[in-house]
Amino acid sequence: MRVEVRNLSFSYDYRPVLRNVSLNLENGDFLVVVGNNGSGKSTLVKCILGINRVPEKKIFLDGMEINEFRRRLRIGYVPQKLDDFNYEFPITVNEIMHVSRYSRMRDEDKLALFDRMGILELQNENINTLSGGQLQRVFIARAMVNNPDLLILDEPTAGIDAESEAKFYRIVNDLNDEGVTVILISHNLKPGRSNFNRIMRLTDGRARTIAASEYFERGVD
């Protein structure tokens, strides 16, 4: 999916969070958004997802103005820390997928997706019993269950172990290779993990696109 942001400024109760942010992503681009806490990373994502309502003609998805964009299933989202989900009530991985699926998908395609995410054996498990890394993969599978062509990941590897993190990036890289546009929010990006081709650094709501080499030489600031 193509994503275009034109000079977007956004404020919470008159407190400016984004200032004149612009962005242009083509199909299959992989953008990493870096920046300190409070720099506006999650706010930008919320604007693109339509959670934050933005003025007209500021964000376009596949050329369509975001306030008129109705095909929400084309966007997959893995939230930060997954704490919006009510965990303690029993529900299996399979049941989560079932209630999240609103587009046609054959059962064998669903099983192939589970297999690819490494959650095939977990499909009948109660999600209460899963580890952080397993949960993270379940939620990427959920984001992929409607076959989206934009995947947005908000600090997806916070709090999971190194091996799960590596596995996670392999899956995301594969999806990107197949043409899915990826926006990954991160505040400590490590080299060699994801096959991103763009980096945007947010500082106090101002965006600057930088080269990957520059980022790894000089860090976030």
């Binding site: 959670i51 919006d84 989900f85 009530f89």
Partner: peptide, 11 residues
């Protein structure tokens, strides 16, 4: 019930 925000995202 389980994830109100995600439900909104699904439209």
């Amino acid at each position: 019930s389980f994830d109100e925000r995600y439900a909104r995202l699904l439209g």
